[in-house]
Design a protein around this nucleic acid. Structure first.
Length: 392
DNA sequence: AATTTCACG
DNA sequence: ACGTACGTGAAATTA
């Protein structure tokens, strides 16, 4: 992956830059018009803090680690109803991030000889066993289709009439959780091919699966993901904008409906205390010394890390085994096809257009067969001429 | 070098 | 009463 690299259409990025830069200038003027004479660097959290909470006298929401008033997205969102400036700053930040981190920076990484970007993948950076990408990081290219972000993906293009194929594991961490816990309800949902977020919602609300509304499904989705992070009632209440009490009810109800998940989590914590480390399914160890902490906050953090490491790390192992298997098979029958990128639960592959259909099938089957569990693995594939086209 | 913020899974 | 969701990397500012 590092050696092959990936082609970047610098001219397309330059076109995007014109639009984004024009928008940035427009917002800077709008803010200047409201603020008056005082010049302000919108990239400086400290100057934004002064503007919002001293000049404009807006109510501070919370403090950062060093005691200053935070100005992050969540804070700005909360202030947006009180004054026009916070919303403008949100948009400014969005565009400035896009320009500084991606549009302006990526072209400098294009190699003069290969005309490709060659990222570096580290196998020892992430404590869970995931890969990490750097210089540049190609695992955090914008994916959100609501703004201009997704257009950066359009600049990553297949060459010579080839097409890109994306192959992504569907809900791999929840399937890992289902397998490791052997939770009957979670396993059956996957075995029956149910939409797992609707399933969780249906169980939480005691409603038939078919009657789940889109909003209810979104809630099930948030809760499913939160479980893997070791959610707290406080964190969930903040995320969903509901009361602490209701959040606690949801969590209690989740563990009622998936009792073996609860038992499994307890057993992981116990094992971590015995050994001083957690182990993934294939035996990667992560030492967690704070599991012996008396400070409750640190101890609870250790518990969350232990749980999440097993799920995230085991999923990473499945992906790495899948990559080895795919690489070997491609080398034998489809030597013109190559893996270009890995984004945790997803691969980006390039292949000549004539064999794309066959390669898609091979990759899907191979990745789904890495393990033969009593919980199925499911891989979705998409093909297209650039990275935007295959982002769903 | 530390801090803040924000992009991704 | 207290503090509060996992794993990363990069850019800009500030100390």
């Amino acid at each position: 992956m590092e050696k092959l690299g990936i082609y970047l259409d610098v001219d397309l990025l330059h076109e995007l830059d014109k639009t984004v830069t024009a928008n940035i200038l427009k917002i800077e003027k709008e803010i200047a018009a409201v603020v008056g004479k005082e010049t302000i660097n919108l990239n400086s959290p400290s100057q934004v803090e002064n503007l919002l909470f001293y000049t404009l006298q807006l109510p501070p929401q919370r403090k950062s680690k060093t005691g200053k008033f935070s100005t992050d997205y969540e804070v700005l969102k909360a202030l947006a109803g009180l004054h026009p400036i916070p919303a403008l700053i949100i948009t400014y930040r969005e565009l400035a991030k896009l320009k500084n981190t991606y549009i302006d920076a990526l072209p400098h990484y294009v190699n003069k000889k290969t005309h490709h970007i060659h990222t570096t993948f580290s196998q020892t950076a992430a404590a869970t066993g995931r890969l990490a990408s750097s210089n540049p990081n190609l695992q955090n290219i914008p994916a959100d289709a609501s703004g201009y972000g997704i257009e950066v993906r359009a600049a990553f293009k297949a060459e010579h009439g080839d097409l890109f194929i994306s192959a992504d594991y569907s809900q791999i961490e929840l399937r890992v959780l289902a397998y490791l816990s052997q939770d009957v309800n979670l396993m059956n949902a996957f075995l029956q091919g149910h939409d797992i977020h609707s399933e969780t919602s249906a169980r939480l609300f005691d409603v038939a699966l078919a009657d789940i509304t889109n909003d209810q499904r979104q809630l099930g989705k948030r809760i499913n993901f939160s479980i893997l992070y070791g959610l707290t009632p406080y964190g969930l209440s903040k995320d969903l904008g509901i009361s602490f009490k209701d959040a606690k009810r949801y969590i209690d109800r989740y563990f009622e409906q998936y009792p073996q998940v609860s038992e499994w989590m307890k057993s992981i914590i116990e094992k971590t205390k015995q050994l001083g480390y957690v182990e993934t399914l294939w035996g990667r160890k992560r030492y967690i010394p704070t599991i012996y902490e008396k400070n409750r906050t640190l101890y609870e953090e250790a518990c969350r890390i232990a749980i999440n490491t097993v799920a995230q790390g085991t999923a990473a192992e499945i992906m790495k085994l899948g990559m080895l298997a795919v690489h070997k098979k491609l080398a034998i029958d489809y030597s013109q096809a190559s893996i270009l990128l890995q984004i945790h639960d997803e691969l980006i592959i390039s292949a000549p257009q004539e064999i794309v259909g066959e390669v898609e099938k091979l990759v899907k089957n191979t990745l789904e067969s890495v393990v033969e569990w009593n919980v199925p693995l499911v891989v979705m594939t998409h093909s297209g001429a650039d990275w935007k086209e295959i982002t769903k």
